[in-house]
Design a protein around this nucleic acid. Sequence first.
DNA 1: TTGTACGCGTTATCAA
DNA 2: TTGATAACGCGTACAA
Lengths: 342, 342
Amino acid sequence: MPTLKDIAKATGVSIATVSYVLNNGPRAVSPATREKVLEALRELNYRPNAAARGLKGKRTDTIGVIFPHAVAAPIDNSYFSPIIAGILDVATEQKFACLLFSGLDWETVEANTSLYGDGRCDGAIVIAVPKDSELIQSMHNFGLPFVLVGTHPTNLITNSIDTDNVEGARQVTGHLLDLGHRRIGMLQGNENSSSNDERTKGFCLAHTERGLAVDPNLLFPSAYQDDVAYESAMRALRLPKGQRPKALFCANDMLAAMAYRAAAELGLGIPAELSIVGFDDYAFAKSMIPPLTTIRQPLRAIGARAAEVLLDRVHGKDAPPAPYLFEPQLMVRGSTAPPTQD
Amino acid sequence: MPTLKDIAKATGVSIATVSYVLNNGPRAVSPATREKVLEALRELNYRPNAAARGLKGKRTDTIGVIFPHAVAAPIDNSYFSPIIAGILDVATEQKFACLLFSGLDWETVEANTSLYGDGRCDGAIVIAVPKDSELIQSMHNFGLPFVLVGTHPTNLITNSIDTDNVEGARQVTGHLLDLGHRRIGMLQGNENSSSNDERTKGFCLAHTERGLAVDPNLLFPSAYQDDVAYESAMRALRLPKGQRPKALFCANDMLAAMAYRAAAELGLGIPAELSIVGFDDYAFAKSMIPPLTTIRQPLRAIGARAAEVLLDRVHGKDAPPAPYLFEPQLMVRGSTAPPTQD
DNA sequence: TTGTACGCGTTATCAA
DNA sequence: TTGATAACGCGTACAA
């Protein structure tokens, strides 16, 4: 690997000059030597050494992405991966690379956080961290720019990017209510997640706005894990006919897929005997049979926006630590219909 | 951020001593000073600077992962993300981080490859690169340890990790033939991909082993993209009844999902009127309705194995540049049944 | 047992 | 317009 010194030697100039050519400044170089240097750079296939640059206190051109990648929950693929794709879109465009810091769960991730503090990245994006996590405060104390995705800490210390979960849940529940449904169950997500709190709130809001009460027996605790979700769905759908919900609002599309499975096993037709709606509009939602009515969350755009905000911070344009909410979009497909008579 | 110098000053020893304590050598430090130093390190919350370490020529404790993340194909999530999860499993355990180098397609990725050569990582994993890509040769020339996943270059210059695609395709096609199917179509994947070549080969092999010929009209060119796949599936299933395949082998599960959609739109019951099999066993396969019969490819284990092999190389244990093939596993579910009479 | 000093490849300051 | 050189933080050969 050639270094500045090699280029300087080959060209007969000083390393300073080479550096100025490389960085287009901060001082001028005569066109003649400039050309000579550029040629040598190309000739020897020179690559600036990232470590040396980082050491000089310059940017590392790297952003960290912090998230857990649990063992077998489809949500990990469907949720994290479009977000990371969006981050990559923006990062690649701005010639940044992404450094993943991960672990199976948040506990492991937090235990490994030492990694982000060693000057390997200029900033970090933290995805779906539990809102009571110490990580948020400790990162803030650390001073590295960071942005949250899918989490709204109570004290606003940095930017957070997300979809308006309350509004989305309100819309999709409203869609069911407007179809005439009155016995709607909700399959909930992780207990300590921002998204589940907000989606539950929107579910209730849609009811109260119409002067209707939510039956607490129709809130089915579950989690963003396929096995847990399947069990919860079975519990909900095995209720005696008069109590069984005629529609299910699932806290995300993966839960909805599990509800489909439970319904199929119990011989309940969708949407004839049971309407199902989800949340997120994962890639597979439109391919489900029947296609799932759900709330579209622009995950890739969320990731891209997070990267933009972070890179602005990295470049010194400090935005106020405001939350940024994307508008949810109701996607009415084939899994919802008016209720049939009992 | 405290540096070695700060610790040295606080403890009243030299930076060399601090360094020796940190690295447990190469020379001994008296237990007394050792304790003092350790305490100061903890006290001041010292973190070694990765850039400085990298500059000294030591390991960066980072592995690069090179792959494209195209615009909207579900395969990207379902294929890449479990592999990356597997890489993360091993990397995290060995205290390595993963640096993603990506672009929308391989063209962009290759244009950005300059990134991997700047000393930011100790080695790289390249996922599903087209087998004729220059990237492979240029990385080899570069001298950075690397490992391939899902690609088998013709000249064996490093390790490659994959599933035995020929054998998997042979098994799942054999399953259809053994059910009595004789008019089996194949929905193919990307033209220049190793996986598609090998799966096509296995498809043919299963036929010839049984003394049967493959009807070339039943090979439907397609790609690992949902829109293209859907169109191809429609073309296959719109054939007049006597020519229409009664079973479809899809080059991966995403194609199979698109075939489900096409079948649903044409009113063809699965598996009554049409058997469908896939390949990969993506997370969603078992939740499809009916659950998809497919070949399980242990993607997460593949990622983990790739990371292990790479880290061995990084640590200097040079294995021979052999390919490593995982055994495919036939998962018989509800999407296959014996053919009905015409 | 410990301290001093050099060099890794950059960038930036100072001097020419 | 350019060259010499200090500094970034760390690891280690050498001197003490």
